[in-house]
Design a protein around this nucleic acid. Structure first.
Lengths: 350, 350
DNA sequence: ACCGGATGTGTCATCGAATACACATTGCAG
DNA sequence: CTGCAATGTGTATTCGATGACACATCCGGT
């Protein structure tokens, strides 16, 4: 074990621990001679500061907690984590990572552990329970939510799903598509806003509104968004997308384009189209949502890019700002969605 | 700030801090009456233990560090992280996450920070510098490498790329394919083993050997593994895969199957095949490697599954075993690759 | 009645670094 | 040559929890 303490260094350099500390932090008065001797001692002894002791004394850990809910291999998660870590590292912060796996109980435990560990801030990627977030705020620790906004007292980083979906629809309409299908997640028609389901609703609303604004009649036959198993095996969106596209092909054979509310659904749809020999984009255009593995598909999928790295980055930065500045209002930062046109969209009948 | 200390709880319950500590850890003798009063005080004051202070005193942090090298959106990384976190959480350990981004210098800094923070163990996913790993071992901290084996003094979790590739080839040969192409990463022919390039070599060796064992002549025209930009924009393997498949189609038009040394390359290949109208698997079979987004492709890609979750899980478990048991020899654990047959492979001319 | 073990509780040093404070020493202005 | 600020350095306390140790008390056995 590396047992070199500041005391040992001080002894070696023939000074007191206070002087070593002053050299380490470059504050206070230290004579050139003493400084040199201390620096030598530091080097020779291979001293490594004990961050735990410093944290206790300073009552700051220079650490943020990151709680995520990775249903295994949710591609969404990766970039958020990488972005958050990047921002934290830039400011000299460390990241404690916890996976609450979509469970409020576990999320509660993660919060408790993080507060016990006296992190300076906590970033929630899609928090499950607002109470858990509130708990962090109550403890006087910076709290930032990503994607959701369950706790008004916390800061948050959000995107506008409506805007993103609107862009996708605008793109299809501008290409000349009139009959456009929709594949998406279900959501209870009547339910409070700002829940997980709200994302699905916002995307769907944009679809419906875009059609209306284009003067196209809304046709139920063009829409499939039944319930599908969200639990087992990750999202389960793949098979669903495939099944839904099949249904769409049967219900509305005159469709020339489909808007899928996620890349996963789009990927499933693409599989059906491939199996049925429907060429993309020649006979069917397709737009996805998220931009996770979209570029890997054949053909590369046009999709709405959700800036996940940026969201993670902003969230961590926000947390750190809150920690160092501690201002009054926890802000709400918005990230912009953007359409990425690849190879699955073209003029109808091209 | 939550400033409730064990001292406050003790005062409230009318006992000493030692008694509170005994209640908290359920050891030593505590009378029923005292226990009850302490438990009440604990509840009422909302006491939360200060893990930092405990860590300092106990000289154990119940934390492991995880260093990764996520070139943005490397799909490989996610599952490893999730697996490691899962194993750690099961044992009550926390995970400090650092991204060294493929840079030895940064990796060095990550190690220093983690050692400063007195983590009990460090898991390296594909370490960059063996010296950095050795440094951890020298500090008396448990070190585990994933995928590589740069430091013999550290434990490691490895997979056999040769075995995996062999399985892929066996599958194609058993289906009746004779002329099988190869798309892969380049590697210097003459170079020490156990480097990053070794993975590429092992996969290629398995391809070549499998053909030989099947009595098929080795044909350079069936192999494309030139140099492609590994740096910018993640792996850059996608465009490469597409370009290589194009070359293969031209060089060896009689191929009935192709083995791609990664899913990314396979995805690129699939894009070319789609663009050229070559039906998969009817006119061309394709096997990938890694099993990252393979199920999302159209058609779902047959591939060799690299058990990434398991590798992360095992690595963290191993680290924790090393911490708690501290035995003599750091073990080398092997994970098995397994072929996942999906929809891109079939008998030739089927 | 006395002793030893089981039971119950408090005191205080400790983990390693930071820092308030006290105490020197020097330099320079008045 | 006195006084005060600037410069250097060491001592001792603190952060919060732990646990070794000391000290009680109570009980049953002899």
């Amino acid at each position: 074990m590396n047992g070199v303490r500041i005391k040992d260094v001080a002894a070696k350099a023939g000074v007191s621990t206070a002087t070593v500390s002053r050299v380490l932090h470059d504050n206070g008065y230290v004579s050139a001679a003493a400084r040199e001797r201390v620096e030598d001692a530091l080097r020779e002894s291979g001293y490594r500061i004990n961050a735990v002791a410093r944290e206790l004394r300073k009552r700051r850990t220079i650490t943020i907690g990151l709680i995520l809910h990775g249903a295994l291999s949710n591609p969404f998660v990766t970039e958020v984590v990488v972005g958050a870590e990047h921002a934290a590292a830039e400011q000299g912060f460390s990241v404690l990572l916890f996976n609450a796996r979509g469970d409020a109980e576990r999320e509660y435990e993660c919060v408790e552990t993080l507060l016990s560990r006296r992190v300076d801030g906590i970033v929630f990627t899609t928090a499950v329970s607002g109470d858990n977030v509130q708990r962090v705020v109550d403890a006087g620790v910076a709290a930032v939510e990503i994607e959701r906004r369950l706790c008004p007292a916390a800061a948050s980083v959000v995107v506008d799903n409506y805007d993103g979906a609107q862009e996708a629809m605008k793109h299809l309409l501008e290409l000349g598509h009139r009959r456009i299908g929709y594949i998406g997640e279900p959501f209870p028609e009547a339910q409070a806003r700002h829940e997980a389901t709200d994302i699905a609703r916002r995307r769907f609303d944009a679809y419906r509104d875009a059609l209306r604004e284009a003067g196209e009649p809304f046709d139920e036959a063009c829409v499939v968004r039944g319930d599908y198993p969200r639990e087992q095996g990750g999202w389960g969106g793949l098979e669903t997308g495939a099944a839904y596209m099949d249904r769409l092909l049967a219900q509305a054979p005159d469709l020339t384009a489909v808007f899928a509310a996620s890349d996963l659904l789009a990927a499933g749809a693409l599989q059906t189209l491939y199996a049925r020999g429907v060429r993309v984009p020649d006979r069917m255009s397709l737009v996805g949502f998220d931009d996770t593995f979209a570029p890997h598909l054949a053909p590369p999928l046009s999709t709405v890019r959700q800036p996940m790295f940026e969201m993670g980055f902003k969230a961590a930065s926000l947390a750190i700002t809150l920690i160092t500045d501690d201002r009054a209002e926890p802000p709400v930062e918005r990230c912009a969605m953007s359409l990425v046109v690849r190879a699955t969209t073209a003029r109808p009948g091209a």
